[in-house]
């Protein structure tokens, strides 16, 4: 199960709406071993694409060094789908490189940048296997 604050959920949703129709992406870091997302880190989608996302390579190095220095882990890795449901694509599964992370998918296909609910779901992706998990927002 993913336990996450309403504030962090809202931040992800805001980022996804702002970047629509491109995919938005980012990380929520948390203290190592706690499984608790705390620090919201929106990333630039270097692919600037409606169907693909990729963290910029130098931003990625900076992010991991920073988390290392703070003894943090990427508790949540999020991205948006802008025309399809909030379910990991085949590419998402193939490229998933953090077996300990909660992969959060949101979909802005219904309302785009306009107000309105956004589909928000969470998954574990380990060795090519996707498992959806409940999300507890508090």
């Amino acid at each position: 199960m993913l336990r996450i604050s309403q504030e962090l959920v809202d931040q992800i949703v805001r980022h996804a709406k702002a970047d629509h129709p491109d995919e938005a992406c980012g990380v929520i870091a948390g203290a190592a071993g706690t499984d608790t997302p705390k620090r919201f880190i929106p990333m630039i989608n270097a692919a600037r694409s409606t169907t693909f996302y990729e963290f910029d390579s130098s931003d990625l190095l900076k992010l991991y060094r920073e988390m290392d220095d703070l003894d943090e882990e990427p508790v949540v890795i999020y991205h948006s789908h802008t025309a399809t449901e909030a379910y990991p694509s085949r590419t998402d599964v193939t490229l998933a490189g953090e077996p300990g992370a909660h992969y959060v998918l949101v979909s802005t296909r219904e309302h785009g940048q306009e107000a309105g609910p956004v589909e928000f779901r969470s998954y574990r992706i380990v060795d090519g296997e996707v498992t959806e998990e409940p999300v507890d927002v508090h």
């Binding site: 990333m43 692919a47 693909f52 996302y53 390579s57 694509s89 590419t91 998402d92 490229l95 953090e98």
Partner: peptide
């Protein structure tokens, strides 16, 4: 040398 898998997807 630092090795990092890309954080990427579709």
């Amino acid at each position: 040398i630092t090795i990092l898998p890309a954080v990427a997807g579709g």
